[in-house]
């Protein structure tokens, strides 16, 4: 089966400087893949490239069998950015109704995604008055509209409390189990243990990739963060 995301030798130049130096990555249908690494390592740039909003991109970058960002895939990719990208002066429902209209889907799907992110009760609250956690869930709900085949979630759990983070990761796993390819970035490395596969990204390069158990076995570390540190030491040695 064709992968949902196929990245090969991806190079991205920003402001005259190469920030991604030849990345390889695949995400299959139904797979939950974590992009892990410190801030400034190129996680957001990689995600922006996959969604098709990053300029200065070279290399192979195919999404759902088509060129990333081409009109044919735009409606089939859900994207959550770090800034939220929702209207803070509208209610959650009004935000969703707007983005649903762009997808051409109806009110039943708005209700459905609100329920998925556990906001059915807060739907009529103005986003600007919501807590940070609620706002990120509105943003996630927006990305779920139109039943996307690929979800690209850039640090969706940043700044949230542990209970909420756990419930969001469970949601991501459910979405992948539903058949979508799910790509999640985080700088909280231990969170990524819930992924099917992890790519460790540092300074624009994939340091290592594999299943969490493979990474732990290879480095003999007890956690993803430990594996990451071991790999950095290994590279420096």
């Amino acid at each position: 089966m064709e992968p949902v995301v196929e990245v090969a030798d991806l190079r991205v130049t920003r402001g005259g400087r190469e920030v991604l130096h030849g990345l390889d990555l695949t995400v299959g249908a139904g797979e939950l893949v974590g992009i892990v690494g410190p801030s400034g390592g190129g996680k957001s740039t990689l995600m922006r490239a996959i969604v098709g909003v990053q300029s200065g991109v070279e290399g192979t970058l195919r999404v759902l069998g088509q060129q990333a960002g081409s009109p044919g895939v735009r409606g089939r990719v859900g994207y959550v950015t770090q800034v939220g990208a929702i209207y803070s002066d509208l209610t959650a429902r009004e935000n969703l109704e707007f983005f649903a209209a762009i997808h051409g889907v109806g009110a039943d799907q708005v209700r459905q995604v609100l329920a998925t992110v556990d906001l059915a009760e807060a739907g009529d609250q103005v986003v600007g008055t919501m807590s940070g956690g609620q706002q990120s869930r509105v943003s996630l709900a927006t990305a779920l509209l139109g039943d996307p085949s690929l979800l690209v979630l850039d640090e969706p759990t940043v700044g949230l409390d542990p209970v909420l983070r756990r419930s969001l990761w469970a949601t991501f796993a459910d979405l992948a189990a539903g058949g979508a390819g799910v790509l999640v970035s985080t700088h909280v490395m231990d969170e990524a243990e819930r992924c099917d596969r992890i790519a460790l990204l540092r300074e624009g390069r994939v340091l290592a990739a594999g299943t969490p158990s493979e990474l732990l076995e290879r480095t003999g570390a007890g956690s993803v963060e430990g594996a990451f540190l071991a790999l950095i030491d290994e590279a420096a040695a």
């Binding site: 909003v53 409606g75 990208a85 209207y87 803070s88 983005f99």
Partner: peptide, 14 residues
């Protein structure tokens, strides 16, 4: 532009 909603719209079929 600054809230990211423009980017979201353009990443969609808008």
């Amino acid at each position: 532009r600054t809230a990211g909603t423009l980017e979201r719209m353009l990443a969609m079929p808008t």
